[in-house]
Write a protein that binds this DNA or RNA. Structure first.
Length: 563
RNA sequence: CUCCCGGUAGCUCAGCUGGAUAGAGCAUCUGCCUUCUAAGCAGAGGGUCGCAGGUUCGAAUCCUGCCCGGGAGGCCA
């Protein structure tokens, strides 16, 4: 509908003022008193033509003539053009929704193959609430992109090697010694969480006595490096232990995410890049004159592309940096022929973007294909004060614990109901509530109530035919028709979400729609003796029910029929 | 010092690709259950849109400067 109006107005604007180049809008007015659709065309055009906007608006309207979809067109305010739709047009959209027909709801004219990488947290510990936000967002965004007709591959990049992996191996190793009553202590920088002890138990079962210290060994190293030196000279294949616990921890992450309705198509191991020697290949693909040897290390001149400073690719100990493997990973993504590559990163990585873009350009690839979305931090609030979180000390709050506390639906909804640029303060007490204060509950309750009306119909053996009832929508009162206006606005909300890669407008919309329904429900009985009017109300309710179901599905939130 | 995000009602936040009287929820106050879920609804009060300039017919929205809060600036990942 919006496109139709846009087209009509565009034609007229060119007729009146052929040189017109301005960008005008057609929007749904906040207040339905201003019509079903409204445009600021005259205001924008008046600027270029140096004319009075109101007079111009009148000219535009007379030039528009009769439109087959419009009941009346008015000038209002400073020169807004307000369009009121004919009833059959007004009702056409809601009929589809009530019938559960959401075809064409969101259409991408050129469907794309999209690679969506998110979470990708180090498998050196459990997923915590910050990752949870990325997980909820990424999975819901994937749903949305799919609704529009795109092919989406969801991927998790596993940092299964390198110093952090080895450090986890050491942390587990030390905890394993405690299991045989050795006196050891965890040096600064090791992973201190309880999960390390769990890994130690499993590793001990798996490796038996392979990684046990002899009694005579000195057990009081103060630093990680001292430990590494000792281990490297006393144990042949320490990597085997590291790899083993990394694999276990990755499986834990998979499990936690699956519970949270987040399922990846690919788990891409960083180590696979090394197995195929792709780091070296990628470095050789960078522009030759942008690589230089300095201070014993190999550098990439990312400053050529506006980065703050040049970056090391290969350290002076010949070990490639994380950045080097990340370039190889990105090259690999590009080689897999996606139309668009989206990374969802924590906001703390924002300084990392310029160097990655630089490397992509140096590889001769199109960096415009790559889009990075940043997500701000999560903090938790309980009983009025902040819950302290820190990954290092092991005091972070695990996602699985939050889910145990507030449930999957609440957690997903509240992660999504905030725009990503905004730091999120997650109110645990609120998310636990089972009343209208909790928005997700409120939305689900609206849906359940509508289901319950349907049950009541059956119980009372009242016949209800949806199709014919949809022809009675005109019997609704004026204030009830305003809900139809909101219902008709659903695709606009989704389009906005789609265009801007955001989901919070959908959350707000569903909450708003539910609120309107609860009022409607409460005003008077839906099921009444006035059969036709009653049918119309049930038909409207059905459309709301279907939209809530559709919307919650995109968010990955359950939509129960009874509560 | 440089870069990123935020600053809107007592609290938590929408609105920010310039438009009509700045919106929700919570909290506060007042009402509403014999009948489809009161797990709910109706109503009221509450605002220098961080500050100061600028652009415009029109600025919470765009530009500049400043103030406050958070984050980033490793041969960690």
């Amino acid at each position: 509908m919006k496109n139709k109006i846009l087209k009509s107005l565009q034609e007229v604007s060119l007729k009146i003022f052929p040189e017109f180049t301005g960008k005008f809008q057609v929007t749904k007015p906040q207040d339905s008193i201003h019509g079903d659709w409204s445009s600021n065309l005259a205001l924008i055009m008046a600027k270029q033509m140096k004319k009075n906007p109101r007079e111009l608006a009148i000219e535009i309207i007379s030039s528009l003539g009769d439109l087959d979809y419009s009941e009346k067109i008015e000038v209002a305010g400073a020169g807004f053009i307000n369009i009121y739709l004919k009833e059959d047009i007004f009702f056409s959209q809601i009929k589809n929704y009530a019938l559960g027909n959401f075809k064409g709801l969101l259409v991408e004219e050129k469907p794309r193959k999209i690679l969506l990488e998110y979470v990708s947290s180090n498998p050196t510990g459990p997923i915590h609430v910050g990752h949870g936000r990325s997980a909820a967002f990424g999975s819901a965004l994937a749903n949305l992109l799919k609704v529009a007709g795109n092919k989406v591959t969801q991927e998790y990049y596993v940092n299964d090697r390198g110093l952090q992996a080895k450090t986890l191996g050491l942390s587990v190793f030390i905890r394993m010694q405690e299991l045989t009553n050795k006196k050891v202590s965890l040096p600064e920088g090791c992973y201190a969480g309880e999960y390390v002890k769990v890994l130690a138990l499993k590793a001990q079962k798996h490796f038996k006595n392979k990684y046990v210290l002899k009694n005579s060994d000195n057990l009081f190293f103060k630093t990680i490096n001292e430990w590494f030196d000792y281990i490297d000279s006393n144990f042949d294949n320490f990597l085997e232990l590291s790899n083993y616990v990394i694999r276990l921890q990755t499986d834990e992450i998979k499990k936690d995410l699956k519970v949270f309705k987040v399922e990846f198509d690919n788990w891409f191991n960083e180590s696979s890049l090394y197995e195929k020697d792709l780091i070296r290949t990628t470095i050789s693909n960078l522009k030759n004159d942008e690589i230089e040897k300095k201070d014993g290390a190999l550098w990439f001149k990312s400053t050529n592309y506006g980065d703050e400073k040049d970056r090391v690719l290969i350290r002076d100990n010949e070990e490639p940096t994380y950045f080097a493997s990340d370039i190889a990973y990105h090259e690999n993504k590009f080689n897999r022929n996606y139309d668009e590559i989206i990374n969802i990163w924590g906001a703390d990585h924002h300084g990392y973007i310029p160097r990655v873009k630089a490397s992509i350009e140096s590889l001769g690839l199109d960096s415009k294909k790559l889009k990075t979305l940043l997500i701000q931090f999560v903090s938790l609030k309980e009983k009025g004060h902040k819950v302290q979180m820190s990954t290092r000390s092991g005091e972070f709050v695990e996602l699985s614990k939050l889910i145990d506390e507030v449930g999957i639906d609440s957690a997903r909804y509240y992660f999504l109901a905030r725009k990503t640029e905004q730091a999120l303060e997650f109110d645990i007490d609120l998310a636990k509530k089972t009343n209208k204060d909790n928005h997700v509950y409120y939305i689900q309750y609206a849906h359940a109530r509508i289901c319950s009306i349907k049950k009541e119909l059956k119980k009372r053996k009242i016949n209800f035919d949806l199709k014919s009832s949809l022809e009675k929508l005109n019997l609704l009162k004026e204030n009830e028709k305003e809900i139809i206006s909101l219902v008709n606005g659903y695709p606009e909300i989704l389009k906005q979400c789609y265009k801007n890669n955001e989901l919070h407008p959908l959350c707000f919309y569903l909450r708003d729609l539910s609120s309107k329904f609860h009022s409607f429900y409460n005003a008077e009985k839906i099921i009444s003796d006035d059969k036709d009017y009653s049918d119309a109300k049930i038909a409207l309710s059905t459309a709301i029910q279907e939209i809530i179901n559709n919307g919650l599905n995109i968010l990955g939130v359950d939509c129960p029929e009874a509560m």
